[in-house]
Design a protein around this nucleic acid. Sequence first.
DNA 1: TCGCCATGAGTAACATGTTACTCCAAGTAT
DNA 2: ATACTTGGAGTAACATGTTACTCATGGCGA
Lengths: 248, 248
Amino acid sequence: MSEPSAEAADRSGRPPTLTERTIEAVREGIRNGTLVPGELYSVYRLADELGVSRSPVRDALLRLAETGMVAFERNRGFRVVLPGARELTEIIAVRLALEVPAAQRAAVRATAADRAALQNEYEAMQVSVTAGDETAFMMHDQRFHGLLLELAGNAHVTRIIENLRDATRLVGTSTIRTSRSLEDVYQEHLPILDAIQQGSPSTAGAAMRRHLESTGRLLLQEAARKSDTNLKSNALWNDLVGHPPVGE
Amino acid sequence: MSEPSAEAADRSGRPPTLTERTIEAVREGIRNGTLVPGELYSVYRLADELGVSRSPVRDALLRLAETGMVAFERNRGFRVVLPGARELTEIIAVRLALEVPAAQRAAVRATAADRAALQNEYEAMQVSVTAGDETAFMMHDQRFHGLLLELAGNAHVTRIIENLRDATRLVGTSTIRTSRSLEDVYQEHLPILDAIQQGSPSTAGAAMRRHLESTGRLLLQEAARKSDTNLKSNALWNDLVGHPPVGE
DNA sequence: TCGCCATGAGTAACATGTTACTCCAAGTAT
DNA sequence: ATACTTGGAGTAACATGTTACTCATGGCGA
């Protein structure tokens, strides 16, 4: 009764290719700990674990390598890359530069249906928080940001941010619980939602900025905890994220 | 006497792979008109034109497809994609969001050597203008922006912009001459350079903004000229690039 | 015990084989 | 002439074969 390919067709009309399914499989493997960052793997092994040939697996990994999620080592294998403090900071800087204006535009462009959809995701986040289901929470968080970006109307921005989120996901996952701040992250979304419901771009932008900065600091803390890359993080942050000097 | 692979080793120590060389070959083919946008090509033909097997060619094209330069059509072939007004506008919006802050940071961080390097590229642009060598001009223009981005210290930003430039290159090339504005584009770089020499971030940011907006409008004009996508460009521009509303 | 070198297992990169699909164009019925 | 079928050429996606490389391991001499 159950279909062989789970969430198959998207809505693009075509069934997904093996390459695409492999990409999802690798992402899932990273999420649930099957693929450990730093460990050395090979296309051969992964291919017959997934029951497909090496070609689509290789294609999938090459695409993921493009975004920095994995790295190939010639004649050795490939590794899942755990982003360091430097990379995380860079990513936060990009997200600030793109998502803050996106939130502003979204506040102006949102239709009633859009607002309702955002509200839905926000409430789903609420449910996930009380249920303590971090996986579900991350999913709704992603959808919230995704919806907001689509609203802003720039498909390039959406794609870029989606890729960056991929690279950071494995830092945030199963670690936020540690600092019991799932609730905090959830609450930071409320001012964003409110500002968009009220159509106030500057407020929405400011709220998004606060949210991203706070999330960024959390991720950096987490990254510092697991690797010994002890904390010159503050210098990095000021250097790459710190607000551009306004005066001279 | 002449090496088989021209500008081989980069400086990464390793010789470039066939895939990488193919990527460069495709880019070059697009630049010099061997590969016509819109036309249907196949991996088979391209592979034996380049004298390699289908694998590296396919890998190369998949990577280029990731950035939107080419598009595959299942069982049909692939096309070089000419970006439309929509895509161009989106790209300009991203560049504004990322390169303006980058210019600000660069103004603060630049060392004497950095300033000299920028000056060099600027003067090389000058030479290209008087020589009427558009290809060389584009190259130095790219290097100028590339140096500036590296200065800003965010490798992700550098990579993103580099990819976007790729997608737009085939619109700008051999068309700027039409509006005889090579000189204008050159002159717009002076205020940027000056501001960085003087270490003034806000001035550098403003100059960069003016430059990108002006370049963007030129590209849009050009795109509108060759495709019949007649000009609702202005609405697009205001929608995606227009400064975010400052007040409420 | 310690350093050196041969050897072989395992791999990414590259090459070639196979399959199921799309489309065009030439035929055939109407 | 026009619509409708049909065959075949050409293709991306997927599978498998080959090569040249990296590195761990174990023997061998000091």
